[in-house]
Design a protein around this nucleic acid. Sequence first.
DNA 1: TCCGAGACTTTCGCATACCGTAAGAATCGT
DNA 2: ACGATTCTTACGGTATGCGAAAGTCTCGGA
Lengths: 241, 241
Amino acid sequence: MTKVRAIGHRIPMDSAADPRVLVVDDDPALAEVVARYLRREGFEVDYAADGATGLQRALSTLPDLVVLDLMMPGMDGFEVCRRLRRATAVPVVMLTARGEENDRIAGLDLGADDYVTKPFSPRELAARVRAVLRRAAAEAAPAPLLTGGGVEVDTVAHRVSRRGAPVTLTTKEYDLLVCFLTSPGRAFRREELLETVWGWSIGDTSTVTVHVRRLREKIEDDASAPRHLTTVRGVGYRWEP
Amino acid sequence: MTKVRAIGHRIPMDSAADPRVLVVDDDPALAEVVARYLRREGFEVDYAADGATGLQRALSTLPDLVVLDLMMPGMDGFEVCRRLRRATAVPVVMLTARGEENDRIAGLDLGADDYVTKPFSPRELAARVRAVLRRAAAEAAPAPLLTGGGVEVDTVAHRVSRRGAPVTLTTKEYDLLVCFLTSPGRAFRREELLETVWGWSIGDTSTVTVHVRRLREKIEDDASAPRHLTTVRGVGYRWEP
DNA sequence: TCCGAGACTTTCGCATACCGTAAGAATCGT
DNA sequence: ACGATTCTTACGGTATGCGAAAGTCTCGGA
């Protein structure tokens, strides 16, 4: 995972309950419309009528997302967003007036995840809210990792690390490692590896030997006394977790 | 395209033809004025004189947008809008009498995308119609806001900036960047990019190489030592946030 | 309709990292 | 101790990615 989310942010997908949205707007009529629509769309909606209240509510209830009006008396949307960002990573959707280009840019700078320009339809807002939540969930979802013996392989990012430290492998080394990690403890014959990793049905098995050696050099503490990628004499190699 | 729209709703931007608008109003004189103006503004206009007919027509012809009078004998605008929403996602612009605040709220609540209070100028209505169509098209677009590594992409405005400074990208460069930013950290094979961005199943992958290079030239501090758009040797490229 | 600018694609040469082979050294099992 | 197996190292060929530039394509203006 690349980005660390701040403490306390609930991830909607993880919970069975509906995603909770906090709407902060000084126009009660608008907020009411928005809230009703969002509720019908399956969100649990809370409401605050000004910036200070909204901030406090957000920090205490930790909603899944905050809909934030930009122009408010007292503490405006900018300020709320900024303070919110200090403590949490809760996604924010800004409501801005049409054509406030500068405000939009500044809003992005402050870490708003999306913006909707007034006038907007509740349907549009709901769509944006859903999209942002989807993105946030995807971002928080950890990448599937192959692990074993202090080695981690992120097959999505195509990245390898050993005790947290990044390791650069060549294609063949990578394929070999993945092969071993998907079947830890299993002994692979050289011919088998040649078939699986190289796609050869016949060939010089010393090729495997050399690549295993190179792989050991990168992921073992002591390549001449391997503890994970061990030799099975007369057969081939095996990964010890 | 990431989002599936409700059945049968044409997306105006996708079609070369003029957007089709259905006007539903029980006042033929008013409808005639509106229709004529909208036609001159480049819309294809259909007309229905009452709610029931309008609903049926909307469901059968699937226009790009419906202009709906609120007060009608028989089935009123509320009811039409509600039933329309059950089956389609077609945008709706409501025509309401002045000062009917409750109606306005209820209309939006039912999923209307905008409202115009009577009396209105045809010009104003046309402007609203265009705005709603634009929004509807934007709503169908993928993740509206993408950021990572100091680069910001506004997919709504189709605009890219780096540390706040605007950057102009060509189409392919833009598509590439969007592709990377929607899956940061993920390693893309060249063939994959060729498939996703170019739509080719086979082709010369050096095309990707060259475009990636150009993209680096524009968004990296030092294109020869890329920090975000990195090469994954033997595989392709990856975006580091 | 023709032309030109910009965008896109293809080609080519270069530098480098990678791969496979071979040959000698070391190690293991008996 | 001895043969078989594995390890280690070195080296040349090759694939890969990069950079530059020439060759197409497309679209808008004259």
